[in-house]
Design a protein around this nucleic acid. Structure first.
Length: 586
RNA sequence: GCACCCGUAGCUCAGCUGGAUAGAGCGCCGGACUUCGAAUCCGUAGGUCGAAGGUUCGAAUCCUUCCGGGUGUGCCA
């Protein structure tokens, strides 16, 4: 259940009733920061002090009294300058947890009342280039957001908006004719395309005639030349295979792969429309939108005086043009209510401009740039795709390295008798742990922050790291395995009670799950889910140390098995929402 | 120049829809495996929240200025 929303409604009603107001006031429910103050506090009395000309403490007293007698609340007391501290009733919490335990399909998390059609635009690598660590963020943050929104009940379309139509293809076409190796293109397509692209791009820098040829080939491609079209399709085909392999490793999928090329035919119409409406005009041969000439344009854009260029002077279109066509397609074809762009913060200006154009065009979709920080190297500067020794840090090699490190750690653990992984499970466990560690290291941070890339931190197995959470899950599973207890039977029949302090702490964490998922979905912040699962795992490890489960008797044993089952499910669900897997033994 | 982002413990980061004594992990130091799994648990030390003003009953959080760092900015994506 949505706990805070429920308490907010209880609180605001209590304020209205207790103070005899003609309208409800916000209760301002917040979790307490110290358990000794109870579980939640209602801050709503304090802002009313001035208005009602009474001291907040005086106002808080009747509010606290009005809350007495509610099932969910054990006691409500006035504290400090005028807080009303709420202590939740343990039997009430326990009954909610028992309900969640029974609900194997959704773990007690309700579906949203209003379903939105949401496009999540993420990953979007360029064809003909390897994915490197920089692509990791968009891919896994976007995947996590899509998973969270889907679970909430929204209608999500995952779109991989590939960079498959840019200037680079002119260079690639002439480059392949000049230096291409068809065998290499079959065997190792992306490295071969990268090699050729590098040569071509260097040549174009110093040889204007060569650059002109590349532009001409691009124009031919874009005007439908059969030969160039076939070559391009070949590039896309071989690249896509390589991309799919990485996505499979990451357990990331898409509903549609609508790259830039998909919108090519719509581009002239976009520009004509902007010209006709007087939004854009020609300048120095290019078609531009000048913000300071448009009434009602955002102030920051007007001041900044950076035009939005939708057609180059050579007649070619840009990604600005494509993005406008893309929004229109998402409305016309998918009937989307929202579109989320999971793209690096550095493209913030582009999206600000794009969204402003769409507003001028009257789009009623909710458009949001879900930005994220740059991946930095150890020197604190944006990470280059090559490390100091000149090696490309590809995403594939990062994932491979992580799996290997995981395997090594598991081998050590098994040799020392600390871990229990069967030989036939090694591949699977090192994959789940290795990939999970990489994902968790990224996802647990607020996405807006820049991200310092560090092997040891990223592939960490200690403390607040992926394996910690997976380990807690394995401990849960292990209790059931060791005791020979059928988890389904517990789910169907156990009644949870909260007696020991460690049980109470665990139970209160479990109760917060719905709020966390909804908050994460509303703000596109997967790290909130990570944080919650980490705290849950901590609470469970505390419970594990304090409270014997299998050796307990009667109703206590049942209840503890129920708590363990619910914890296992919530860890698995929570990690699943951010795309991280679990294993029963590790 | 203009726009945007950031500055919190030695390091990496939470907290920033304003709420009580600012929290984690790593690292340091010290405890806990004959007892459901020690990738664990318990504890100690460590902070003028970049600086100064302002708003407020209350500011790490909002506003202003300054200092420091980063990013973007006319024909790449």
């Amino acid at each position: 259940m949505l706990l805070e929303r429920y308490l907010e409604s209880l609180g605001s009603e209590a304020i209205q009733r207790a103070l005899d107001l003609d309208a409800p006031r916000p209760a301002l429910v917040r979790p307490t920061q110290d358990p000794k103050f109870g579980d939640f506090q209602i801050n709503g009395a304090m802002p009313l002090g001035k208005e009602l000309k009474k001291s907040p403490r005086e106002l808080a007293q009747p509010i606290a009294e009005a809350l007495a007698g509610v099932d969910a609340i054990e006691k409500a007391e006035v504290a400090g300058p005028g807080f009303v501290n709420i202590h939740l009733a343990l039997p009430w919490i326990a009954s909610k947890l028992t309900e969640a335990l029974r609900d194997a399909a959704r773990d007690g998390v309700p579906r949203v009342e209003e379903v939105s059609k949401v496009i999540v635009d993420f990953s979007s690598p360029n064809i003909a280039k390897q994915m490197h660590v920089g692509h990791l963020r968009s891919t896994i943050i976007g995947d996590a957001i899509a998973r969270i929104l889907s679970f909430m009940g929204h209608d999500v379309v995952r779109d991989n908006h590939l960079g498959d139509w840019g200037t680079q293809f002119g260079l690639l076409i002439v480059g392949m004719r000049e230096w291409g190796d068809e065998n290499a293109l079959q065997a190792t397509p992306i490295p071969e395309l990268e090699r050729v692209y590098k040569l071509a791009s260097e040549r174009a820098g110093s040889d204007e005639a060569f650059a002109e040829r590349a532009r001409a080939e691009l124009a031919k491609l874009q005007s439908g030349d059969d030969q160039n079209r076939a070559l391009w399709e070949h590039f896309v085909e071989v690249s896509r295979g390589t991309l799919e392999a990485v996505y499979a490793e990451l357990d990331v999928s898409f509903d549609v792969w609508l790259g830039e090329s998909a919108y090519h035919d719509a581009l002239p119409g976009v520009v004509d429309d902007l010209l006709e409406r007087g939004i854009a005009r020609e300048d120095e041969g290019a078609v531009c939108i000048f913000w300071d000439e448009i009434d009602g344009a955002p102030k920051a854009l007007r001041k900044q005086k950076t035009p939005f260029i939708v057609r180059k002077k050579d007649g070619a279109f840009l990604y600005s043009t494509t993005d406008i066509a893309t929004v229109q397609h998402r409305k016309d074809h998918f009937h989307a209510d929202r579109a989320l762009y999971v793209v690096d913060n550095r493209q913030g200006l582009h999206f600000q401009q794009l969204f402003a154009v769409m507003k001028l065009l009257g789009t009623d979709m909710e458009l949001e740039h879900v930005g994220f920080g740059t991946v930095l190297g150890n020197d604190g500067k944006p990470l280059r795709t090559r490390d100091a020794s000149g090696h490309v840090i590809t995403l594939a090699s990062l994932l491979e390295e992580s799996k290997q490190r995981a395997r090594q750690r598991i081998d050590e653990g098994v040799a020392e008798g600390r871990l229990r992984v069967r030989p036939e499970e090694m591949d699977e466990v090192s994959r789940v742990v290795g990939i999970g560690a990489v994902k968790y290291a990224d996802l647990r941070q607020n996405r807006l922050s820049d991200y310092q890339f560090d092997w040891d931190k990223m592939i960490s197995f200690q403390g607040n790291a992926g394996p910690y959470l997976q380990y807690a899950y394995a401990r849960c599973a292990s209790i059931f395995a060791k005791g020979g207890v059928d988890m389904d039977a517990i789910v169907a029949s156990a009644t949870i009670t909260l007696d020991a302090p460690a049980e109470q702490t665990l139970g209160k964490h479990l109760l917060r799950f719905t709020d966390v998922v909804y908050q994460a979905g509303a703000t596109s912040q997967p790290h909130l889910v990570c944080e919650h699962i980490y705290e849950l795992a901590r609470a469970f490890n505390g419970f594990y140390a304090e409270c014997p489960v299998l050796d307990a008797q009667g109703a206590t044993r049942e209840s503890r098995l129920g708590l363990t089952a619910l914890t296992a499910r919530q860890i698995r669900r929570g990690l699943g929402l951010v795309g991280i897997g679990v294993v029963d033994r590790m």
